[in-house]
Structure formats: structure tokens, C-alpha cells
């Protein structure tokens, strides 16, 4: 086992896979000489040079399209979005092009590309740098979308992403970068997509989330335990494909579900999860499925207001108390 952080686990994965295969390269803004805005790619440029660590102009549609074109020939680009908020500029390339290519070509052309970067709020980056976009991407057939919550999953799921032959959106909540944890000392370690995990077992209610909200849910479960309530924490981690079986099994056991997500509450991916539980587990539920999501406003700058927007332990506890008593 290796002690590391979420950020370094991602870095290590990229480094190892670039070392493993020359088809893997990274491309994005300020990722080489400048070492990356969140320093994830630090050290790669001196090691691999500008051919494989490609500093681009500030043109998300253009460099994403270049990466897709390269991937269509079998290269394996890892595209860094400086923040996922900026990937909005590249939606045409990602959705209209990358996601549809395998289908539209009748299976002739695949796009083994990863788009990764910080998604969600960091600290006071305000309205245009704090987007959680995984729900938008998970809406799109043809993409795979993952949102790891632990250091080990960041490492193992990125490995899977790099070797997946389909376009993968890999979102890293910036609040997780300094999270500590361990990874196996095994370069071949992978974590498959489409498998949710139970991070804490419980019997009274299921807390369902992904990315940093899973960490919030773990803290909530701790608090609930103090009150004598046993919460199960379901870490979804793969949004598309979605492992509904693990989620449903938990709900069938606890009969109550709270879905927590950082994205705007209305129309976010948590709404999809809640809807599925409602459709398929109706008879198992003792109460309505609850959602705790980000407030439906652009992310404000002032720290007090920002904290107001992002779901935290108190928000989840308050919702549980209010709605489930």
C-alpha cells in the first residue's frame, strides 16, 4: 500500500500509463510548463516533453476536437479541462462529435479519450469556475461518466478510463485533491466502471452520493450513529453506466433513501437516481426519496454565501430530520 493523496494518485496514474504506452498523451491548457492549475500534471512535461504533454492555446473546442481526431486513429489522449466549467465551450465536440461517433459510424470508429479535470466548487472561485457538470454529461448516451470519491478509486478508475475505448468524462471535485488515502502498490490495479460500492453498512437509511458528497455522507452517517441511527453509505462513483442494482439493494434493505449531490438540485443527476429508486423500489420504500442538492443559484463569491450553496453535513442532517423525523 502507498500513502498518497487524491491529486497524487491521479498524477501517478497518468505517469504510469504514459510510461506504459506511448499512445497515451496529455493535452490541455497550462499543463506542461506551468505544471497544471491544480498541479495534477506537475513533473510530466520535464519527463515526457512537449510531444506528449501538449500545452494548448485557450481553445477548448479546438483542442478537444484535436484530441477526438487523434483518438479516432487509436491514440489515447487525456484531455485536461482547467476546470470542468470550461468544458461547456467544448460541449459540441464532446456531445455532438465524440459521444456519437461509434454509433454514427456503425461501430467503425471509436474514441478512446478521457476528459478530466476539477468539477464542482473549489474555494471562492465563484460563478464561472465552480460548475458540477457530470449530470449534463451523464445525460448523453455514448459517454461514460465517473466521479470518484476516494483516493483508491481516483487511481483505479482513471486507469480504467485511460484503457476504455469510449470517451470518458472523469470528474475530480477540487475539494478532494488533498484527501489522504492509500492505493495498492500495483501498476495494473484498476477499478471497473458501473459498480457502486457500500462504504459503510447500515440498516435505517441509505445515503446515496458520488464524488465529494460521498465524503459528506460518511460524516453524516457518523453523526447519525451518535443519535442511534444506522445509515448505509452508497458511493455511486460511476454515473454512466449506473449500477442501479447496488443502489436498489441498499434501499430494499433500509427502506429509505437520501440522494446527495453538489450540482444544482433541479434536474441534476441526483434527480435521476431518485427517480429510478422511485420507479423500481416503490414498494420497498417507507418514505419518499429525498434529495439534497446545491442551491439553484450561480455560485456566489462570498464564502458565507458559497457555503450556503454547497450541501454539507448539516444540510443533509437537517433534511433528514425535517422530512423523516
Amino acid at each position: 500500500m502507498i500513502e498518497t493523496t487524491f491529486r497524487d494518485a491521479i498524477h501517478r496514474c497518468i505517469d504510469e500509463e504514459m510510461e506504459r504506452n506511448p499512445d497515451v498523451f496529455v493535452i490541455g491548457e497550462d499543463i506542461g510548463r506551468y505544471e497544471g492549475t491544480f498541479k495534477v500534471t506537475k513533473g510530466l512535461w520535464p519527463k515526457y516533453g512537449e510531444k506528449r504533454v501538449v500545452d494548448t492555446p485557450i481553445v477548448e473546442p479546438g483542442f478537444t476536437g484535436i484530441a477526438i481526431g487523434a483518438a479516432m486513429t487509436g491514440l489515447r489522449p487525456i484531455v485536461e479541462m482547467m476546470t470542468m466549467s470550461f468544458s461547456i465551450l467544448a460541449l459540441d465536440q464532446i456531445i455532438n462529435h465524440a459521444a456519437k461517433i461509434h454509433y454514427m459510424t456503425g461501430g467503425q470508429v471509436s474514441v478512446p479519450m478521457v476528459v478530466r479535470g476539477p468539477g464542482g466548487a473549489a474555494k471562492q472561485l465563484s460563478a464561472q469556475h465552480s460548475h458540477s457538470l457530470e449530470g449534463w454529461y451523464a445525460h448523453v448516451p455514448g459517454l461514460k461518466v465517473v466521479a470518484p470519491a476516494t483516493v483508491q478509486d481516483a487511481y483505479g478508475m482513471l486507469k480504467t478510463a485511460v484503457w476504455d475505448d469510449n470517451p470518458v468524462i472523469f470528474t475530480e471535485n477540487p475539494g478532494l485533491y488533498t484527501l489522504k488515502g492509500t492505493i495498492p502498490d500495483d501498476k495494473d490495479f484498476t477499478v471497473p466502471f458501473g459498480k457502486a460500492q457500500i462504504l459503510r453498512e447500515g440498516s435505517d437509511l441509505s445515503l446515496v452520493g458520488y464524488s465529494r458528497m460521498t465524503q459528506v455522507n460518511l460524516a453524516v452517517a457518523e453523526k447519525l450513529a451518535e443519535k442511534g441511527l444506522s445509515a448505509e453509505v452508497v458511493d455511486v462513483r460511476s454515473l454512466l453506466p449506473l449500477d442501479t442494482e447496488t443502489i436498489y439493494a441498499s434501499v430494499r434493505k433500509t427502506h429509505r433513501a437520501v440522494v446527495v449531490y453538489e450540482d444544482w438540485r433541479s434536474g441534476g443527476f441526483g434527480a435521476e437516481i431518485a427517480a429510478r429508486i422511485g420507479e423500481d423500489c416503490f414498494d420497498d420504500l417507507d418514505s419518499p426519496v429525498l434529495r439534497v442538492g446545491g442551491l439553484n443559484v450561480p455560485m456566489p463569491y462570498a464564502r458565507v454565501l458559497e457555503l450556503e450553496c454547497i450541501p454539507d453535513v448539516d444540510d443533509v442532517l437537517a433534511t433528514i430530520e425535517r422530512k423523516l423525523g
Binding site: T64, G65, I66, G69, A70, M72, N96, H97, Q108
Partner: peptide
């Protein structure tokens, strides 16, 4: 599309495929 012959389409978003063309050249 005809991948076997390196014909890469075939695109409906005006201008969108030009970046992909750049990417094909990038790969070469």
C-alpha cells in the same frame, strides 16, 4: 465513413469536423 480506407466522414455540425481533421494530422 469507411475507416478501413481512412475516410473519416461525414459530419453535420458546420465547422465542427475541422478540429477533428486537425486531430488526424496531429496523430500522423
Amino acid at each position: 465513413y469507411d475507416k478501413e480506407r481512412n475516410f473519416f466522414g461525414g459530419w453535420g455540425i458546420v465547422g465542427g469536423h475541422t478540429a477533428l481533421g486537425g486531430g488526424l494530422a496531429f496523430a500522423a
